[in-house]
Simulated assay, not measured.
Amino acid sequence: MPKVEELSVGQLAERSGVAVSALHFYETKGLIASRRTAGNQRRYARDTLRRVAVIRVAQRVGIPLATIREALATLPDDRTPTRADWSRLSARWRDELDARIRQLGRLRGTLDDCIGCGCLSLQRCRLANPADALGDAGDGARRWDDGEA
């Protein structure tokens, strides 16, 4: 059986376990690329399978699509991403993940206090209004700050 050099969107979906609609979405976001046949059908290079695997793993650990796109842009277009490529990409994301883990740890500790106090006050709540930093702006929705909580 000859080695297939290109995959249709259906073949890519079947082999990667990703829905066709998700593959189209990845393409519109610049994460993967295809060429069009004379009949206007998408064809993907075989290395797209590995790129889709990288996207799925990165998404699973919470890496934003824009960050994934930037990382994939550093890979050569003419070959399958290697273990060394993955090591380089994942190392770039490690600091971001460590910061998120620290933030979630702080949030978890504060959440316990919030549930225990039962104040439900946006003016006094340490979770929604840490150190009363936003208290002068009055009641209402406030943004979360990565460095606090």
Rank of each mutant, 00 (worst) to 15 (best):
L134M: 10
S8L: 06
T82K: 04
V18G: 01
P130W: 03
P81M: 03
V52S: 06
P76H: 01
G62C: 14
L7I: 07
P81A: 11
D139S: 08
C125K: 03
L97A: 14
A137P: 01
I55N: 05
G17Q: 07
T37P: 00
E148S: 09
R106K: 12
V61P: 06
Q123W: 01
A58D: 03
E70T: 14
N40A: 11
A73N: 14
Q59K: 06
L65A: 03
A71K: 01
R94A: 12
I32P: 07
L122W: 09
D78Q: 09
A45R: 07
A22C: 02
D85F: 00
S121C: 10
T74P: 02
Q103Y: 14
S34E: 06
A133K: 10
A13S: 15
L75M: 09
P81Y: 04
S16C: 02
G118Y: 06
G109A: 15
P81E: 08
T28N: 04
L127A: 08
R15T: 02
V57A: 05
Q41K: 05
A58F: 05
G109H: 03
Q103S: 11
R126G: 13
M1H: 03
N40W: 03
I32Y: 02
A149C: 01
L97Q: 14
G39T: 01
R36L: 11
R43I: 00
D98S: 11
G62R: 09
R15S: 00
V57E: 02
S8D: 02
L104N: 09
I32A: 05
R51K: 14
S34N: 04
I55S: 03
A13K: 05
R92H: 13
M1A: 10
R92N: 14
G62Q: 12
V57Y: 01
R15Q: 06
T48N: 10
T28H: 02
S21W: 01
A19T: 01
G30V: 08
L104W: 09
A84V: 10
